[in-house]
Amino acid sequence: METFSLTIDGIPVAAQHGQTILEAARTAGIYIPNLCADPDLAPYGACRLCVVEVDGARGLPTACSTPATPGMVVRTDTPNVNMVRRGVVELLISDHPEDCLTCPRNQHCELQKIAAYVGVREQRFRKLHRPPIVDDSNPFFRRDLSKCILCGKCVRACAEILNVGAVNFINRGYRTYIGTLGERPLVESNCESCGLCVEVCPTGALASKNGKAPSREVNTICGYCAVGCGIKLGVRGQELVGSTGDPENEVNHGNLCVKGRYGYGFVNHADRLTSPLIKKDGDFVKASWDEALDLIAENFGKHRGDAFGVLSSARCTNEENYLIQKFARGVMGTNNVDHCARL
């Protein structure tokens, strides 16, 4: 693709047509703080943190919404830019609870990062009183509007990426908040609990109810359905503590459905069967695999032919499904093969 050159903070930067100043800067490795911009979402320009000065332009345009143009001279560190940035961060802090240490987003919070970047050391503005508005209805994540900075990422991701539009802005001005149609609890709305909003939320306003951070991540493919989304499973010791979409995966580009993101609880569930059980005298009794497989082989042998059928699962891998049908046809002598995903 054709590229052109512009200057950011005195550094020549190559950009492509259609890129914004923020994208050009990001490509060149120049950090411009922002809270409401997201590469997957349309430019929005609400947080005003990415303001820059552009030679010949009036005022302070936002880097996230201003297209880069050939020969453009951009400055990201001027007294006016810093004044607005500091002011915005201070205002956001004035309107935000101070419970960072116990916040689920601690250390992964964009607001924290930007406050550190701007170097806010004191609080000049009064703390605005905002009662916590918590929606605990969703089984997987919790919403606390007192931590919401109204960047609109959840609203836009839900609408632009998911085409669901479960949440939107309610009211205006300082009384604005994010809510559902009819202001019902999330669980009663058309929210699909996919958790993308939680993923894009820069603060602790939306956070997973599972509070454990993983000690390592394992890249794999979601086993729930045949789509084959790439996931990163978060593992801590022997426990599966989280799942996120793999942004590098061509299939899902990081998006997941509720099952892929939150349906991992069974793995370490106490009720999960970890060994075969054989019913003896009316009770299930733990058995070895050999014992169990012998019992199955013995009984299956009595029912070969069309009296037999297999019902496979979308939770199984392609290889497992292949083996199941081969077993049905080759061993049991029947074409009675079916699969829940066919329905």
């Binding site: 005003r48 205002l91 009064r126 109204l150 009211n171 205006r172 001005g173 300082y174 604005t176």
Partner: peptide
């Protein structure tokens, strides 16, 4: 003016509230 703010930009939404207080 504060009640007319659309609430999108931080300086206007929170700044005008601070000013009013």
């Amino acid at each position: 003016a504060q009640s007319e703010s659309c609430g999108k930009c931080v300086p206007c939404r929170v700044g005008s509230k601070q000013m009013l207080e």
